[in-house]
Design a protein around this nucleic acid. Sequence first.
RNA 1: CAGGUCGGCCAGGCGGUCGCGCCUCGCGACUCCGGAUCCUUCAAGAAUGGGGCGCGGGGUGAGGAAAGUCCGGGCUCCACAGGGCACGGUGCUGGGUAACACCCAGGCGGGGUAACCCGACGGAAAAGGGCCACAGAAAAGCAGACAGCCGGGGCAGCCUAGGCCGCCCCGGUGAUGGUGAAAAGGUGGUGUAAGAGACCACCGGCGCUCGUGGUGACACGGGCGGCCAGGCAACCCCCACCGGGAGCAAGGCCAAGCAGGGGCGAGACCGUUCCCAUCGGGUCUGAGACCCGACGGGGAACAGGCGCGGGGCGGCCCGUCCCGUCCGAGCCCCGGGUAGGCCGCUAGAGGCGGCGGGCAACCGCCGUCCCAGAUAGAUGACCGCCCACGACAGAACCCGGCUUAUCGGCCGGCCUGGGUG
RNA 2: UGGGGGAUCGUCUAACGGCAGGACAGCGGACUCUGGAUCCGUAAGUCGAGGUUCGAAUCCUCGUCCCCCAG
Length: 111
Amino acid sequence: MERRIRLRHTNDVRRVYEEGQSWPHPLLVLVARPNGLDFTRVGVTASRSVGKAVARNRAKRLLREAARRLYPQFGAGWDVMLIARPRILEVKEPQVEKALAALLKRAGLSM
RNA sequence: CAGGUCGGCCAGGCGGUCGCGCCUCGCGACUCCGGAUCCUUCAAGAAUGGGGCGCGGGGUGAGGAAAGUCCGGGCUCCACAGGGCACGGUGCUGGGUAACACCCAGGCGGGGUAACCCGACGGAAAAGGGCCACAGAAAAGCAGACAGCCGGGGCAGCCUAGGCCGCCCCGGUGAUGGUGAAAAGGUGGUGUAAGAGACCACCGGCGCUCGUGGUGACACGGGCGGCCAGGCAACCCCCACCGGGAGCAAGGCCAAGCAGGGGCGAGACCGUUCCCAUCGGGUCUGAGACCCGACGGGGAACAGGCGCGGGGCGGCCCGUCCCGUCCGAGCCCCGGGUAGGCCGCUAGAGGCGGCGGGCAACCGCCGUCCCAGAUAGAUGACCGCCCACGACAGAACCCGGCUUAUCGGCCGGCCUGGGUG
RNA sequence: UGGGGGAUCGUCUAACGGCAGGACAGCGGACUCUGGAUCCGUAAGUCGAGGUUCGAAUCCUCGUCCCCCAG
């Protein structure tokens, strides 16, 4: 996933958390907010509760891969945070992809 | 072959499709820097070059523990007259090392049939203090009589009048019992009223001393001595050695942005010079001016002294250096702004191979190789095949160790037992 | 990432190296018509594993978890 479309700065992330709307799923949580740009930015995160460093890296990789594959389906002009939950480690990538697609549909972000 | 023990190595592999970080090469009519030129300024702005971005090609990309952060160094910033006292660490000996709490070799002690493994392993005997609960008569320096044993005395009882037994008092005794983690050498004898290192023999241990071997820890042997000396220094302590403080969020640069306010705070010291007013004297015709002197008053400048305040010298004291002393050093509190980029950032006590030195850890020389540098953090997803199902686990300034976690596999040395030749 | 601190009944909090105590909450009982208050009784704990020591919550080592501070 290219860095240009990644959500990387603390202020941006905090703005999404404060002003955005969230949609939960057993594997992950999606938080989104319009950003006023003509493209969408995506950030991923995994907290201590997911596991140790290896587990957190694995969780973030799964989220990034799913977002990369589904990026063409994203509507333009959103800042999106994907938050990993512990059970994401139990599944393989396609299931994460399905979960993310379902969340996009519920949130009205997919086109 | 089985069991054991020690050491080394590996950490799923191969192929395909999509994807990521970094480096590098090429292309670009995009963009930023740069600035010749022009010019009062603003503005405009060529070339070489650099950065970014886009596209394409090539290379490269986590660990043995990357972990815990328990030690030791490098590096960076701060501080670097010195002395004393504290504080912390290490603790058999010799060596290795940049250094270490690590490693190697050796000694001593303990475990194992053995290979081999384990050990915070200086000093408790002479520097000193402290503690040793409960139990027990007594718990630490020439200790301690509860029962017991023995002697003497008194009283009462029995009987064959010599003893026996009971109670009480005085004394001896650390051999016996009991308590305890621990009761102040062991065995055998002499001795005695009963006993006791009281004495003797042997053994153990201790101190002094001599000799031999060893760099040394220490080992072996001889002589003398007193008869024997409890444990705990992961309690204080003593001895020897070592130790500045903080940490890459160190530290530096660029850009952007804001707003300051309040409180506390040490001499209104002394000295020198000058000025002003005051007083005294003198000169000039007078108001007054000028000159000389005086002490106290006010003001300015200056360097110094003492005092005071603050800071540094890791903590404290001495000492020392710096700053300040009312135009005020510094300290404290409240409030405001920033969350962007670049450097540090990876070539190093570096890996591999060879030769040489050393028992070894390791060291020296030569050759050769370049091996992550991210910044919400790069290795993933899917498919096929094989071994037969893949554990613990993710670099964040860099190294050397230690400790902890871990599915398994391969290789080698050695020991024990069995079989065969 | 680096630095610092801590862990004792369910909660809060004591304990020179010598039997782990107190308060609140809980449970049982008494008092009351019932509840509250009060009184009596009761159970429950040293984060885990080793070591030093006769003896460890305390001293030492390793591990686990939690909290705090750094631009």
